[in-house]
Every structure is written in structure tokens, then in C-alpha cells.
Amino acid sequence: MVEDVVRLKLPVSEELAIQKNVITGEKGPGKRICVITGTHGDELEGQYVAWQLARILEEKKAELSGSVEIYPSLNPMGISTIYRGLPGFDLDMNRIFPGSENGSMYEYVARKIVDDIQGADLAVDIHASNIFLREIPQIRINELTADKLVPMASHMNMDLIWVHSAATVLESTLAWSLNSIGTPCLVVEMGVGMRLTKEYGDRLTRGILATMTKMGMLPEYKGTIHQPIISHDGNVGYINANQSGIFMPEAKHAQYLKKGQLVGVIADPLTGEIREELRSPNYGLLFTLREYPVTLAGSLIARVLEV
């Protein structure tokens, strides 16, 4: 059943509506899981997962205990206009949580979203990197919530769980806001902005179903679940460009690299020169790789997980 989370009037003949699909199991009461995506209008990988989950769970309703709530688009204006942030507001929606009842429109919307999800037994917030970087399927967890969330994340069929350090600015995210009020929230990052990667979407869909089984919402899960690598910041090597130009990759995403192996070059199409060679800082897994070719000095090119 499609329900409104919040609905507000826009200037001219339209309403802004944040909606969710509530799928209630027919096997009786049970836990509640929220699957959320579309905070950033250019991240579309979660659209596939939302669609698949809605289809599969409608078919499995008779076996389902509890409820699943799917929020496919927290930022419908952004998705409909190919815009990462909040159109007209020009802020990153994932920096205004938990919002405010008395704040301006999107702060109010953020508050309503948090209120709506609050109390769920698990929330899964699906992101898709951005248009610049491609990511392997992973879950990112703030070190302050690692003890509670890492076990919950381990059944999600991801390649990597990255436990990252706490930063005050991240307290403005949806995940932080939910975790701080006792609603466990896992942040998924996978794929690349403005694209769908069906393989990754299928992986996560199976992972959510497997996790629901662990939570007692579905009968036994019969598929195979990938065991993730669990990593901390200290194991991650960064490669940033020091020159502007066009990035030409040499290495392949999700491959293992040797220390010093060429990841790619920054090319100058005007002169034909190579402005910079970018090499792996360690032996490890190339889990992040730049997808968008134009680079500026400082642009993130790759992240390598030391193994």
C-alpha cells in the first residue's frame, strides 16, 4: 500500500510528496524493516533494489511476518531533474537531518522522514556513490556504532564493510540521526551515479532477503551469502590527482593490485602529454575507481583496500 510520508504544496499546480510502499506480511506480526533510497537525485542503484524487493515481497506476502516499508525516493525533485542535491534549495539532503519541525521546507521534510522511520528494527539506506566514482558493494559504518551494526551488516551479501572514523559533520546524515535515536541504520554504497548495475542490485536484494530471514521475517534463505571483508580506515589507501586533465584508467575496478601498479594516467589532450601517473600505494583491492574522466587537482581517483 502506497502511503504519504509528507506532502507539501509547491508554487505552481504541483505537490511535493515523499511516499513509501508498505508491504505487510500475512503471516502475522513481526519486525519492521525500512529500505530507503533516493536521497541524492543522481544515485539510482537503489531504484532497482526497491523495484525488485517490492515485486518479490508482494509474491512472498503469505510467508512474510511483520512489514517492509520501501521509500524509493526521499528526494523526488532531485531524481526527476537529474540533480544530486535539493533543487531550489541547493543543499545536500544528507546534511540536513534530523531536520526540524519549525525549519524551512526540506528541514521539515527531513524531520517527517526521521519520524516516520523511527522505531524500525532495521533501516537500510542505499546510496550509489556519485557520478565520479564506482564502488564495489559495501556497507559503511561509523566506528561509534560498529559493535551493534557490523553483525547486522554481515548478512547483507556485500563485498566490504568499511568501519570509518566519526566526524561531527556526519551527524547531519539520515543514518546518524536514526542510529542516534536507537533505530539501527546501515548505509549501503555501491555502483556509480546515474547508472544501474543490475548485478549489484541483485546482490543487495538477496542480502536484504537473507537479513530478513535472520530477523525471523521470512522462512529459511536458501541462497549463498557472500562474506564481506571488514575493514577500518587504516587499511584504506587513497589516490588523489595532483594535476588536472583527463583520467585514463589502466587498472580494472574490483581487481587486486600490486604496490606501485599503474592505476591510470592524467592525460592532456591539448598537448598529447601525460601530466601524471597514478600508482597504487599498497597491495590490495581496488574498491573505488574514478568513472568520470575530467579531473581537477585533488580529484579522488581510487581507493585501495590493503590486504
Binding site: 544530486r84 541547493d90 546534511r95 565520479f132 575530467v294 581537477l296 587537482a297 585533488g298 580529484s299
Partner: peptide, 27 residues
């Protein structure tokens, strides 16, 4: 453009910055 045209980041949300980081962090 109000924000950094490449990635829409806000320089005034990047302090104290990071000399090995992204473009606006370096700036």
C-alpha cells in the same frame, strides 16, 4: 554557479581543509 561547479561542493563546508584531499578541501 554558487558552489564548486565540478561536484557542487561548498568551500565553506570544507574547513579546516586537507592538503591531500579533494579539490575544495585543498583550496
Amino acid at each position: 554557479k554558487r558552489f564548486w561547479p565540478m561536484d557542487n561542493t561548498d568551500i565553506n563546508r570544507m574547513f579546516p581543509g586537507y592538503d591531500q584531499g579533494e579539490t575544495t578541501q585543498r583550496l
